[in-house]
Nucleic acid binder design. Structure first.
Length: 778
RNA sequence: UGGGGCGUCGCCAAGUCAGGCAAGGCACCGGUCUUUGGAUCCGGUAUUCGCAGGUUCGAAUCCUGCCGCCCCAGCCA
């Protein structure tokens, strides 16, 4: 299994594993997911990941993914965002079945369910102030306290809620709350709010409602209504899952219930993905809009020239997991270049020109050279003519008067190839008053038309160029990252991290064919980068180019690394004021110590285990956290007869604790005596350690008597060493390469061979097996 | 009365439930090829999985302890 999607491999991640399992087990016949944006801003690259996940899973498993607008807050939402969101999803290449859904479609059903909860005594109207409710909620380490209205009569609740809904109260006067537990360790479960009063028109329901449901009350139920099977959201909703389940479990539901799963949101270096912060950039004019090509929005990336394929590929490369992470920008660059390499025809353009005069070029003559649109490794055809004459423009960077070591472009006396053209030699540098080169006087090799000298001499460097007389000026916008640090706003205002050079507008000079580039299409300016003809600002025959990304450049990179030290990381956060609420929670050791302090019998056991039974303090500590465990242990010691208590302690800590569940000792499938007898058998040499482990596994899953289990499974029969030898020979014969690697020092492979042999020779003593294995392998 | 998560190479990430060869990708470093210092192709890069003990023939995986990071106290989603 692989997490990548290269070749025929399909992405696997924990979400897909769960979905696969649910389908294989028959828990669900088909998978239904949903993408639930709130229409209060534009979608960004983080949403792209969620879209790829939700729609991608539906696609792969032959299911369905709904687009559902989570429009429960009329004050921030706007239909213009609805249109933009739909456009972005479609552009990414996904579609939803039927119409888009809306949480606001379910307001009536939600209201009915709320009534149901009130009637069941599970919800109540609270008319306290917002502050009072906040204070009563307690803190993260202190329980909350009940609202004085918590036990309001059902009839009164019904009446009040009806009046809320009818508009009888002003904004904020009261709320409907679920009656759960104000002392719940999960803050989300402390009588969460279900409805608030907002006399605000909803963009779809207009004035139908003046009470609006909160996210938690709307989301799970909307999932249920739509038959969603797997409700995927980001990690910050993990705490909400318990409430999600509570709501779904406490209402009358027709179909099967949805389950929520959480994955890590996407963070990319040099980007921010907070809708609030993005909105501030738009409103503050730091960017030209939501679709500014520097924005991490889908609209911005699209305008920049990133393709849907590249963005989806990027999301695949990133993967889906639960660890908070931050992705290197090079991953996005890679995805973009990998796609555009096959989609962008090549053209010649000079960004920062330096004049070159070909002194031996026949006066007034123009040569029209063939130039392929695609490099040899892209299987596409097509070419155009490029005019060549005596006055050219080349890139200033491609000339060095005093060349660095390894520089193989143009310098005085050296030769270079002009792409698709001729080989030229630099004979003279003409300088301006400041000593800057302003013109190069060169001679060309007439026998090198097309680029290959007739005499077969090798020319290492190739540079791009433009005929000055035929040069077409084109506006190019050289975009760079919007922020200059990998993690903007880490410990200060993110606006301070804005990159002042995120956009450089230059007038470049391109070959005549440039005029034919259609707005909204891509080109590669050879040796410069990938560009996208801006669909809004390009005029017919006068394209404006956005630089999507540069080409990978190993030359300037190595030079930069030599000269400039790496950009200093922003200073590690200056420890924002110590948070008293984050006091350390008590550890298991502390908890056990407390338990013993409160229970004399427990503390007596703690002493007894150490002094009378010779058990180490740390082990004794673990064993004496609860009475049940000590009793279990003591029982096992008795049944173990001659086996020492220390041995029983090992088994208890390492094996029993492993299989013990939430029910504790009581939930075990076997009793102390069984464990004791097993320890006795293995200690007495009746069965091997390997057999003891197998016996314990059976004991743990289905209980029984150890001796009977041993007999039934034949775990006491001595392994036939001849068979072991045969198994070893077979394993070595089947893996000659690995045997060779082992001999070469790959010690880890002993585990591989052991695994092979032990599977064949069950019951054999691993020590003996390994001894023989090593002998045969050497 | 705290609770819920997460730590595997510079980055992303399989593997952890069920102990037996530390996947893959990005980046990087070599080499190949090349009329883009692009692309391609080949090869290299973790004796070690946050740390420390323990169990085991064998531990990323099981047990114990410790450390670090994220989330939750909106009438936002």
């Amino acid at each position: 299994m692989s997490a990548s999607r290269d070749g025929d491999n399909v992405a696997t991640d924990f979400v897909r594993t769960i979905v696969r399992g649910d389908i294989d087990s028959g828990a669900h016949e088909t998978v239904v997911t949903r993408f639930p944006p709130e229409p209060n801003g534009f979608l960004h690259i983080g949403h792209a990941k969620a879209i790829c996940l939700n729609f991608g899973i539906a696609e792969e498993f032959g299911g369905r993914c709904n687009l559902r607008f989570d429009d429960t807050n009329p004050e921030t939402e706007d239909p213009r965002y609805v249109a933009a969101i739909k456009e972005d999803i479609r552009w990414l290449g996904f579609d939803w079945e039927g119409d888009a859904r809306h949480a606001s479609d379910y307001f009536d059903q939600l209201h009915d369910w709320a009534l149901e909860l009130i009637r069941a005594g599970k919800a109540y109207v609270d008319d306290q102030t917002e502050d009072a409710i906040r204070e009563q909620r307690g803190t993260v380490t202190e329980p909350g306290e009940n609202s004085p209205h918590r036990d309001r009569a059902v009839e009164e609740n019904l009446e009040l809620f009806q009046k809320m809904r009818a508009g009888g109260f002003p904004d904020g006067a009261m709320v409907l709350r679920a009656k759960i537990d104000m002392a719940h360790p999960n803050m989300k479960m402390r009588d969460p709010l279900m409805y608030r009063i907002r006399h605000a028109p909803h963009y779809r329901r207009d004035h139908d409602w003046c009470i609006y449901p909160f996210y938690d009350w709307a989301h799970g139920q909307s999932d249920a209504i739509e038959g969603v099977t797997h409700s995927l959201c980001t990690l910050e909703f993990e705490n909400n899952r318990e409430l999600y389940d509570w709501y779904v479990d406490n209402i009358e539901l027709a179909g099967s219930r949805p389950r929520q799963y959480e994955f890590a949101r996407l963070n990319v270096d040099y980007m921010i993905t907070s809708k609030r912060k993005l909105l501030r950039l738009v409103e503050g004019g730091q960017v030209t809009g939501w679709d500014d090509p520097r924005m991490p929005t889908i609209a911005g990336l699209r305008r920049r020239g990133v393709t849907p394929t590249a963005l989806r590929r990027f999301c695949d490369l990133v993967g889906v997991a639960k660890a908070d992470s931050r992705v290197d920008l090079s991953m996005l660059d890679y995805a973009v270049r990998d796609d555009l390499n096959h989609k962008a025809p090549r053209m010649l353009a000079v960004i920062d020109p330096l004049r070159v005069v070909i002194t031996n070029w026949p006066e007034g003559e123009v040569d029209h050279l063939d130039a392929e649109y695609w490099p040899h490794d892209v299987p596409k055809d097509g070419s155009r003519k490029v005019p060549f004459d005596g006055t050219l423009l080349i890139e200033r960077d491609d000339f060095m008067e005093e060349p660095d070591k390894g520089f193989f472009r143009l310098s005085p006396g050296s030769e270079v190839r002009l792409r698709y053209g001729y080989v030229i030699r630099c004979d003279e540098v003409v300088k301006d008053d400041e000593g800057e080169a302003k013109e190069l006087r060169c001679s060309y090799d007439p026998d090198s038309r097309g680029g290959s000298p007739a005499d077969g001499r090798r020319i290492k460097g190739t540079i791009h160029w433009i005929s000055a007389a035929h040069a077409v000026p084109v506006e190019t916008r050289l975009y760079d990252r919007l922020f200059r640090v990998p993690h903007p706003g880490l410990d200060h205002d993110y606006l301070e991290d804005l990159n002042p050079d995120s956009l450089t507008q230059v007038n470049a000079f391109a070959e005549p064919a440039i005029a034919e580039v259609e707005p909204g299409s891509h080109v590669q300016f050879e040796r410069v980068g990938y560009f996208f003809a801006d669909p809004n600002d390009s005029a017919l025959g006068a394209p404006v180019f956005n630089r999507v990304t540069t080409l990978r450049d190993t030359w300037t990179r190595t030079r930069e690394e030599q000269s400039a030290p790496a950009e200093p990381e922003p200073a590690p956060s200056a420890t924002a004021g110590e948070d008293v609420r984050k006091r350390k929670k008590r550890s298991p050791v502390e908890l056990r110590a407390e338990a013993r302090a409160a229970d004399e019998a427990l503390s007596a056991s703690f002493e007894r285990l150490q002094t009378a039974l010779g058990i180490e303090e740390a082990t004794a500590d673990v064993l004496t956290g609860t009475r049940e465990l000590v009793e279990f242990f003591d029982g096992a010691v008795v049944a173990a007869e001659s086996a020492p208590p220390t041995e029983v302690a090992k088994w208890t800590v390492n094996q029993v604790l492993r299989v013990i569940g939430d029910d504790g000792v009581a939930g075990l499938a076997f009793d102390a005596a069984a464990l004791g007898r097993l320890v006795s058998m293995t200690h007495g040499g009746d069965i091997s350690g390997e057999a003891a482990k197998k016996t314990f596994a059976i004991l743990a899953s289905s209980g029984g008597d150890p001796a009977a289990i041993v007999a039934e499974h034949g775990l006491d029969v001595e392994a036939d060493m001849d068979a072991v030898d045969a198994a070893i020979d077979a394993a070595i014969a089947a893996n000659p390469d690995k045997a060779e690697q082992f001999r070469g020092g790959q010690q880890g492979l002993i585990g591989f061979f052991m695994g092979q042999v032990m599977r064949e020779a069950a019951g054999a003593d691993p020590r003996q097996v390994q001894e023989r294995l090593r002998a045969k392998l050497s």
